[in-house]
């Protein structure tokens, strides 16, 4: 009865049609909220939850817990199950506090990892912020340098330092920023922040447009031209 499911071409036609209808249906919320969107929203939530369940089993529990325990004979993994049950103590008001034991373990582990993460993430950043000589910059002697390179490299380095200082000053909370010098620095910090956020916004536009291009390409090419009109891919 379900033999058609083993035919690749049939399956492809089915899923491309489904995908096209899903795509158009989701876009309908751009006009206004409606029954089609609401149907797809619930479908999506269900599929996504189902996917999360399957991934939890196939990529975590099965290879890292069940198989080592039952195939490789590492019986001690059975102790993980009662530990996991601690999460579910929240359903028993008298013992709800016990779930804090496992949350505590998680908080602790996350906190303990922070030291290495801090050193690994922020030390190189500080190093790069320091490596900006304000005299005789190496750029001046690099290939492609011209008469202004040395000066502009110094100016760029000064700007770099000024921005780092002013943005950090902007985020000091423990004193009123009343002194004119500090107020000016902090305001310059805020302006550069806006510059940076504008830059992020601008470059994100390209990423988001690319996504839409991908979907439109699917609708126009994969669905309409190839599947509906039967044109050659």
């Amino acid at each position: 009865m379900f033999d058609f499911l083993s035919n690749d071409a049939t399956v492809r036609v089915i899923y491309i049609w489904c995908a096209a209808l899903c795509t158009l249906g989701i876009y309908s919320i751009l006009y206004k909220e409606n029954k089609v969107y609401r149907f797809l929203e619930h479908l999506f939530l269900g599929l996504a939850t189902g996917y999360t369940i399957s991934q939890t089993w196939t990529t975590i529990l099965k290879p890292q817990w069940w198989e080592p325990m039952t195939n490789d004979g590492q019986w001690w993994w059975a102790l993980a199950l009662p530990a996991g049950l601690l999460f579910y103590m929240v359903f028993f008001p008298r013992h709800a506090w016990m779930s804090r034991l496992i949350f505590g373990f998680f908080f602790g582990a996350a906190a303990g990892r922070t030291f290495q993460a801090f050193a690994a993430t922020y030390f190189p950043l500080v190093k790069s912020a320091v490596n900006i000589p304000l005299m005789n910059p190496p750029e001046a002697s690099m290939p492609g340098a011209y008469w202004l390179t040395g000066t502009s490299a110094i100016l760029n380095n000064l700007l770099f330092l000024a921005i780092v200082i002013s943005v950090m000053v902007y985020f000091f909370f423990s004193f009123e920023q009343r002194h004119p010098a500090i107020r000016m620095t902090s305001r310059f910090g805020r302006y550069t922040l806006m510059f940076a956020f504008g830059a992020i916004f601008g470059s994100t536009i390209m990423a988001r447009m690319s996504l839409l291009i991908g979907r439109m390409f699917f609708l126009i090419h994969d669905w309409f031209q190839v599947t509906v009109l039967g044109m050659k891919g």
Partner: peptide
């Protein structure tokens, strides 16, 4: 990266990472 993830990683180009 996607265009959105790129800008915040420019410091890493400079730091040689």
């Amino acid at each position: 990266p996607t265009a959105v993830m790129g800008p915040e990683k420019y410091p890493l180009l400079k730091s040689g990472q």
